[in-house]
């Protein structure tokens, strides 16, 4: 079980982003709230339990990882967890749009989540990770992360 370890295989993150892109594309094209609900649930597990414990992470560990060599380095799980939480918010907003029958809200939310997942899958660009600092500029953390301890 690697879900308890602090690091995650970056290739697993890319794999998960690719699956997310495909699932969100299906949600966008079919307008199915069930597909969106399933993806939102995946986001929730990833945000709460970490990317390795999410269904896509488990699928990667079970089906893809055994065929690959050991990763050169592991990523800090904190960044992708934050990104999954951002995805969760978009998913919930999209579902809320369905519930109140304001389809525009759903299109915007799912479109944004799809764009973010696609950028991660195709370009390795993690939008959720990039906006983290902007978010912190407005809401400073009370527990500064000690991983990059530098004199201030």
């Amino acid at each position: 079980m690697q879900s308890t370890s602090p690091g995650v295989d970056p290739r697993g993150l890319r794999f998960a982003a690719t699956l997310t892109t495909v699932v969100l594309a299906v949600a966008l094209l079919t307008g199915s709230s069930w597909v969106l609900a399933a993806q939102t649930l995946v986001f929730a597990v990833g945000a709460l339990a970490g990317p390795a414990a999410s269904p896509y992470g488990r699928l990667f560990a079970w089906s893809v990882r055994p065929r690959l060599s050991a990763p050169k380095h592991l990523e800090d799980a904190a960044a992708p967890r934050f990104a999954q939480a951002v995805g969760l918010i978009f998913g919930l907003v999209g579902l809320a749009g369905h519930v109140v029958s304001v389809e525009l809200v759903t299109y915007v939310a799912v479109g944004a989540a799809f764009a973010a997942a696609f950028l991660n899958a195709a370009f390795g660009f993690c939008l959720g990770c990039e906006i983290y600092l902007t978010y912190r500029r407005f809401i400073p953390s009370h527990h500064p992360n000690p991983t990059t301890e530098v004199a201030s």
């Binding site: 380095h73 934050f82 983290y132 600092l133 992360n145 991983t147 990059t148």
Partner: peptide, 10 residues
């Protein structure tokens, strides 16, 4: 400038 949530910082 680095942060914990930063893959390219490495």
């Amino acid at each position: 400038f680095s942060s914990a949530f930063c893959q390219p910082c490495r």
